[in-house]
């Protein structure tokens, strides 16, 4: 059995909405290069809706696929709807991720929420937020038996 689902592979090989948005209304940048994942999501907001969304990701197959999927899930949706999309929803839409990837590379929804937060902060004159570093993984956290 392959490590990743067909859907993950499809998004990994044909990622949607890759790129940058010049003069974006909100940018969510999240990750830690030491862990191997950095996601950067750009949004353009119109009438409280996500009018355009693009991403750039440094990371593994799961990181790229979840980034791609989250942009597809929320494009054209209201900010409220976008805020309700969780990492779990993204993973489910990809027909699941390997257990070990659930914590580490499944950050796309968090990056999206950060972009929305950044948009609101900028509007309130308190932005931009900039890159948010996620903590490094503790290898002792991972009991391989639990992943079985």
């Amino acid at each position: 059995m392959p490590v990743y689902s067909e859907k993950v592979m499809e998004h990994f090989q044909n990622p949607r909405n890759v790129g940058e948005i010049e003069n974006a209304d909100g940018i969510g940048e999240l990750g830690n290069p030491t862990c191997g994942d950095i996601m950067k999501i750009y949004i353009k907001v119109k009438d409280d809706k996500i009018d355009d969304i693009k991403f750039k990701t440094f990371g593994c197959g799961a990181a790229i696929a979840t980034s791609s999927m989250v942009t597809e899930l929320v494009k054209g949706k209201t900010l409220k709807e976008a805020e309700r999309v969780s990492n779990e929803v993204v993973a489910e839409a990809l027909d699941g991720l390997p257990p070990v990837k659930m914590h580490c590379s499944n950050l796309a929804a968090d990056a999206l929420h950060l972009a929305v937060e950044d948009y609101k902060a900028r509007k309130a004159g308190k932005g931009p937020i900039g890159r948010v570093e996620t903590p490094e993984h503790d290898e002792n956290e991972h009991d391989l038996l639990e992943h079985a």
Binding site: D37, G59, C60, A63, H137
Partner: peptide, 27 residues
């Protein structure tokens, strides 16, 4: 990142390994 490089090479029929965190299984 190494794993995504590994996966693309795999697509092209080339099997390699990587020492990246994501490939390591202990992260």
């Amino acid at each position: 990142e190494g794993e995504s490089m590994l996966m693309w090479l795999n697509n092209n029929g080339i099997m390699v390994a990587s020492g990246s965190a994501c490939t390591s299984k202990i992260l």
